[in-house]
Amino acid sequence: MTYLSRIRINPLREASRKMLANPRILHAAVMGGVPDHPTQERALWRLDTDNPRRPMLFALTRSKPDWTHIVESAGWPDADGEHAAVRDYTPLLAQLATGRQFAFRVTANPIQNTFRPHKPTPGQLEKQALGSHRAQRLGHRTAAAQLQWFTERTQRWGFRLPEARTDTGIPDLADDIQMRPAHELLITRRDRLTFNKPDNPKPVILHTATFEGLLEITDVGVFTERLLAGIGPAKAYGCGLLTLAPPRKLR
């Protein structure tokens, strides 16, 4: 079975401040809630900070989790309300059908693989000088590039983006004159995350974007696989979890 959880985070507590500042620490906390083979099971998670005073942590796990440790150290353990909601994901999966539309949200790590970075870092220049023939993975830094990265991959993820009813289109990055159809799609948040790993002196840098919009399923099998496995890279650091809701009009 698969379970989708929502955990309330208290940003004023010491443990939560550490989690909110470092995706590696938050990932460890999520995996600490998985009782069955936590080193083998890959959990997806996402931190939503629409209200910075009430962050919400979402997690998708294959086994039923226990979030007591997060509630006690980073939540409101003695307050009223539902601190950690855990729901069976099966009823949602049963609703998936070709042509069905859903509102969605996902935080992703849009990247490109290139042999010639436009503005190479000192480390990338060193690799070029050494004659490295491996493509380098770089994060897309502009909203336009991040949007294009997303829209170009929806078919391989088993869905399409319906065209917007009012907008006329947005410029194609390859040709500013050519207009691509506008979609029911927004970037609602963009971040540059920097954190350290114990085994690496160089900091990890991630450029992330939170996408919200309307999708239409084109391939139920592929779409289900992406719901369960996530989309894009950096899944251990809060990227890739696609959540669904009834269709709604974007603001």
Rank of each mutant, 00 (worst) to 15 (best):
G123H: 11
P52L: 09
T49W: 02
L227F: 05
I177Q: 14
G169S: 08
D80S: 15
A234Y: 03
V30I: 11
R100V: 10
A59P: 07
A129R: 15
V30C: 01
N10L: 03
R46T: 06
P162A: 13
L125F: 08
H140W: 14
G240F: 02
R153E: 09
A74N: 01
A29V: 04
E14P: 05
T142G: 07
A84T: 03
T218S: 13
V106H: 03
A143V: 11
T168S: 09
F104A: 12
G232W: 03
W149L: 11
R8F: 02
A129C: 03
D175I: 01
H140C: 14
P181T: 04
A21S: 15
M179F: 05
V222Q: 15
F211Q: 10
L214R: 14
E126R: 13
L161K: 05
P52K: 07
R54M: 06
G75I: 09
R156I: 07
R13C: 05
I9W: 05
D50R: 15
N10H: 07
T2V: 11
R160F: 00
L12P: 00
C239D: 02
F115W: 12
A28I: 01
I170C: 08
L125M: 15
L193N: 04
R13D: 10
T243Q: 11
V220E: 14
W149V: 12
Y3V: 00
Q155I: 01
E163W: 09
I177D: 15
L147P: 00
R156H: 09
V204F: 02
I177F: 08
F104V: 10
L215F: 06
F223Y: 06
G123K: 10
A182T: 09
S132V: 10
R13S: 14
T114N: 02
F102Y: 15
A85E: 12
L215C: 09
A209W: 04
I170W: 15
A21H: 08
A129I: 06
L206S: 01
A108F: 04
V220G: 03
P162Y: 10
F115G: 10
G240I: 02
T208V: 11
Q101N: 01
P52V: 09
R160L: 06
N113L: 14
E225L: 09
K64P: 04
P117M: 07
I170N: 09
R13L: 14
V204R: 13
R100D: 00
G81R: 10
M31F: 00
T224Y: 00
R46D: 11
Q136C: 00
L125T: 09
P171F: 05
D66H: 09
A43D: 02
A97M: 04
N196H: 15
P171I: 08
R190W: 02
L147G: 11
P23K: 11
Q40C: 05
Q178Y: 12
H118T: 13
T224S: 11
N200Q: 14
G158A: 08
A129W: 10
H27Q: 13
A145L: 12
L215H: 10
L60A: 11
G238H: 03
D48W: 00
P23Y: 06
H183Q: 13
L185P: 04
R141W: 02
R160E: 13
D50K: 12
H183A: 11
N200S: 14
R46H: 13
D172V: 09
H27I: 06
S132E: 07
Y3F: 13
E82C: 08
G139Q: 05
A129F: 10
D78I: 01
I231P: 08
